[in-house]
Amino acid sequence: MAAPLSPPRLLPSGDSAITVEFSRRIDDDANRRVLALDRTLADEPIAGVTETVPTYRSLLVHYDPVQVGFETLGKRLIELAQRPVPSSEKGRRWRIPVAYGGEYGIDLEDVARTLDTTPDDVVARHIAGDYRVAMLGFTPGWSYLSGLQESLYMPRRRNPRLLTPAGTISIGGVQAGIQCIAGPSGWHLLGCTPVRTYQLHRDPIFLLEPGDRVKFYRIDAKTYVEQERAAEHGEIIAELIAA
């Protein structure tokens, strides 16, 4: 049998939640442990646990202190968190279309200048990435992706924008992202996708899940308009290539 993994840190979060922290930095191995613990708690429920919220490097566990205490719950979480993580994830693989540059990606040329290359080369590097959905958060459907090529690492914008478009495909620091609804952002906007990762009256409401894999491909403005119209009516534009 595989040896138990190192124990995570337990951090009290108010009087009815525990943060199970596996790392202090963005790390795929830590994220796999987060998602593994989240799945374990779904498969082996603990009395008193009311909700779990996975992030890049930690799992927030909400609980009812009337049913279970911090010490008892913490001990059980430590035990479960030290179980070996499966060597392969069962996440789905998606192909997601993107219209790059111009009105769809207003930072593309600036990013290219900063990296001393061309917009087409930035797009080629972005498309070449094999991305993994690490977490959802910030706004509904906002998908944080690991797997950005190191050659595209860039500090976030010094002055964040108060409003960026729905569907924005962006990069920031060591991450890539898919923004579903309009909102503020300090990331660099490379393009836009007609794919709705969140749509309230569609089944499923959330398209992507942590652990899924994503590949991007380029489309022109005409295709974007056509797919955007279809997405508005609930069509799932993203292509599921492996389940």
Score class of each variant (00 low, 15 high):
Ser170Met: 09
Pro65Met: 12
Asp116Gly: 11
Ile171Ala: 03
Gly129Lys: 06
Ile171Gln: 07
Ala182Lys: 10
Gly137Thr: 03
Arg9Glu: 15
Glu109Cys: 05
Ser146Cys: 12
Thr118Cys: 10
Thr223Asp: 15
Ala47Thr: 13
Arg158Tyr: 01
Tyr224Ala: 02
Pro160Thr: 02
Gly48Glu: 03
Gly173Trp: 04
Val53Phe: 11
Tyr104Thr: 06
Leu189Trp: 07
Ile96Asp: 04
Gly173Ala: 03
Val133Lys: 05
Arg113Glu: 13
Glu89Ser: 14
Asp203Thr: 14
Gly105Glu: 03
Glu235Ala: 11
Lys222Cys: 04
Ser185Val: 00
Glu209Ile: 10
Ile236Cys: 14
Val111His: 02
Gly186Thr: 00
Pro86Ala: 05
Phe138Gly: 13
Leu77Asp: 09
Thr114Lys: 13
Asp43Thr: 08
Gly186Arg: 00
Phe216Thr: 10
Ala124Trp: 06
Asp212Cys: 10
Ile78Asp: 09
Gly186Phe: 00
Pro12His: 13
Tyr131Ser: 02
Ile127His: 12
His188Glu: 01
Tyr100Glu: 07
Gly69Ser: 15
Gly14Pro: 11
Asp43Ser: 13
Ala36Leu: 09
Pro140Gly: 08
Ile78Pro: 11
Arg39Gln: 14
Leu240Trp: 04
Pro7Tyr: 10
Val68Pro: 13
Lys75Gln: 15
Ala17Val: 07
Gly234Tyr: 11
Pro155Glu: 09
Pro45Cys: 06
Ala30Asn: 07
Arg196Met: 13
Gly102Asn: 13
Gly91Asn: 07
Ile171Met: 06
Ser6Cys: 08
Asp212Thr: 06
Thr193Ile: 08
Leu108Arg: 02
Met1Gly: 15
Asp220Val: 08
Pro155Phe: 06
His188Ala: 04
Asp116Phe: 01
Lys215Gly: 14
Lys90Glu: 12
Asp15Pro: 06
Arg39Val: 08
Ala81Asp: 12
Ala17Cys: 07
Ile169Trp: 05
His188Asn: 08
Arg161Leu: 09
Gly173Pro: 00
Leu10Cys: 13
Ala230Ser: 13
Leu59Thr: 10
Glu71Thr: 15
His188Val: 02
Arg33Ile: 12
Ala2Leu: 12
Pro84Lys: 06
Arg25Thr: 15
Asp116Ala: 14
Phe22Gln: 04
Leu108Phe: 05
Leu35Arg: 03
Leu73Ile: 04
Ser87Pro: 00
Ile241Asp: 03
Ile96Val: 15
Gly129Ser: 06
Asp120Lys: 14
Ala243Tyr: 02
His188Asp: 02
Val174Thr: 14
Ser6Thr: 12
Gly211Met: 01
His201Met: 10
His62Ser: 15
Gly74Asp: 09
Ala243Pro: 00
Pro86Glu: 05
Asp203Gln: 14
Phe22His: 09
Ala182Arg: 11
Glu232Tyr: 11
Ser185Ala: 12
Ser143Trp: 06
Gln67Thr: 10
Thr117Gln: 08
Pro184Phe: 09
Arg161Cys: 01
Ser87Val: 12
Thr197Val: 06
Phe70Gly: 11
Thr52Gln: 09
Val66Phe: 04
Gly234Thr: 10
Pro4Met: 07
Ala166Thr: 01
Leu108Ser: 03
Leu163His: 08
His233Gly: 05
Glu71Tyr: 11
Lys90Cys: 04
Arg202His: 14
Leu77Lys: 08
Ala112Cys: 06
Val195Cys: 05
Glu239Ser: 11
Pro86Met: 06
Gly91Trp: 03
His126Met: 08
Met1Lys: 12
Asp220Glu: 12
Val53Tyr: 05
Asp107Arg: 01
